[in-house]
Design a protein around this nucleic acid. Structure first.
Lengths: 215, 215
DNA sequence: GTCTATACGATGATAGAC
DNA sequence: GTCTATCATCGTATAGAC
C-alpha cells in the first residue's frame, strides 16, 4: 500500500459530546450484539454503525468485553424502567405477572433487544463467558423476586398455600425466555410477537386458574 | 471427550477406521460446541480433542459448517432414539409428555449435549446462521408433533375440547428450553438437574390438571 | 488417512498524530 | 476525542508429502 501524506480534517468531525457518542455506540452495540451475538459481531462493525473508527470506540470503552457489560447493564435499566420497579407499594403476584405480560408485549416490538438477550444468554451459559456472572445474577434476581411475590401472595391469601412458589417462578421465567427464542427463530416479526404475547398471557392465566385462591 | 489419546506417529498411521475417527470427531465437537458454542470453539480445538490435526479433521468434514450440521443431526438421532419415536402405536398426549419428562431426566445427566443445544439455539436465532434452518425445523417439528398430539387427545376424549393445543405445545417446549438455560447458567450440576426435572414434571402435571378430562 | 507447512483474511487492541 | 497506521494473534481452509 502506498504511503500517502496524512490527510485529515483537523478538529473534531463529530459532535464530540462524550455522552452522545457513548449512547450512539451503545445503541449500535445493542443492535449488533443482538443480531449476531457477542462473538459474532466485531468491534469494527459496531464502530462503523456508531459512526466512528475502531480506535475511536475503544476510547470510550476500553475493551469489547467492557462494552458488552455496559450494554447488558443498560438493558437492565431499560427493563427496570419498563417494569416500574422501585415503586413504593409492592405489587401483588398477580399484578406483577400482568406487568410481565405487558413487558412481553413491549418486547414484541423491539426484537433487537430480545435478540441481544437470547443470543447472549445462550453464549453466557458457559462459565468462562464474560457475561456469565451477569446472566446468573439476572436469572436469580428475576426468579427470586417472583418467588418472593408468590410467597407474599400466600400470606395475603391470594395464592393457595400449597403452591410451589419456586417452581412456578422458574417456570414463568422459562416460558418467557423459551417463547422469545421460538419467536426469534421464526423471524421475530409482528405476527409472531402477538402470538408470543398471547401465549405468555395464556400461561399466566393457567397459573392463576390453578393456584389462585380466587374463583 | 476422548477416551484414549490415539498415539499418532508421523507418516502413514496404522489402519485407521474412518468411522471410528468420525465418531471421535463428533464426540469432541459435541463437547466443544456445547461448552463454547459454534463460534466460540475453533476447529483446531476440536481436532486436538479428537486426537488429530486440523487438516486431518477437514478430511472427514469438508468445513466447520458441515461439521456443525453433522453434530446437530446426530443430536436429533440421539433424541429420536431416546424418545423411541417410530413406534407403531402412537402415544397419547399424556404419555408423550411423560416421555418428555424422562428425556429431561436423561438430559440432566449429559450437560454437554444440552449446552450444545442451548448455545447453538441462541446463536442460530439469527437468519444468517448456518444452523438457523435446523433450529426452526427442530422447533417446528417438536411443536407440531405436540400440537397434533393434543388435538388427537381431544378426539380421544382425553383432553378438554376447549384446550389451546398450539399454545400448550409451544409453552411446553419453551419451559423445556428455558429451564435448561437456567440449569446450565447455574452450573449444570446434578442437583440442579434434579430440580430441572422436577420443575418440568410439575409443569406437565399442571397442564394435565387444568386441561385433562380425567379427574 | 493423516501429516506439515502455509496462505490469507479478520480480529481485538495499541501508538502516536492532530 | 477521534483519527490513521500498525501489530500480534488466531481463524478457516488448502497444497502436497508420506
Amino acid at each position: 500500500m502506498t504511503a500517502q501524506p496524512v490527510r485529515r480534517r483537523p478538529g473534531r468531525p463529530r459532535g464530540a459530546d462524550p455522552a452522545v457518542t457513548r449512547e450512539a455506540v451503545l445503541d449500535a452495540a445493542v443492535e449488533l450484539f443482538g443480531s449476531r451475538g457477542y462473538r459474532g459481531a466485531s468491534l469494527a462493525e459496531v464502530a462503523a454503525a456508531a459512526g466512528l473508527s475502531n480506535a475511536g470506540l475503544l476510547h470510550h470503552f476500553p475493551s469489547k468485553e467492557q462494552l458488552l457489560i455496559a450494554v447488558l447493564q443498560r438493558r437492565d435499566e431499560v427493563d427496570a424502567h419498563d417494569l416500574d420497579l422501585g415503586r413504593d407499594a409492592p405489587l401483588t403476584i398477580w399484578q406483577r405477572l400482568d406487568v410481565m405480560v405487558d413487558l412481553v408485549a413491549l418486547n414484541a416490538q423491539r426484537p433487537g433487544l430480545v435478540r441481544l438477550y437470547s443470543t447472549v444468554a445462550g453464549e453466557a451459559t458457559h462459565d468462562g463467558h464474560p457475561a456469565h456472572d451477569w446472566l446468573t445474577g439476572h436469572l436469580d434476581g428475576v426468579v427470586d423476586d417472583l418467588t418472593t411475590a408468590f410467597e407474599a401472595g400466600k400470606r395475603a391469601g391470594l395464592v393457595r398455600t400449597d403452591a410451589p412458589s419456586g417452581r412456578l417462578a422458574r417456570t414463568v421465567v422459562a416460558v418467557l425466555d423459551g417463547l422469545q427464542v421460538q419467536w426469534l427463530a421464526a423471524g421475530g416479526d409482528d405476527a409472531g410477537g402477538a402470538r408470543m404475547t398471547a401465549d405468555f398471557r395464556g400461561h399466566v392465566e393457567d397459573v392463576r386458574a390453578r393456584w389462585s385462591t380466587e374463583t
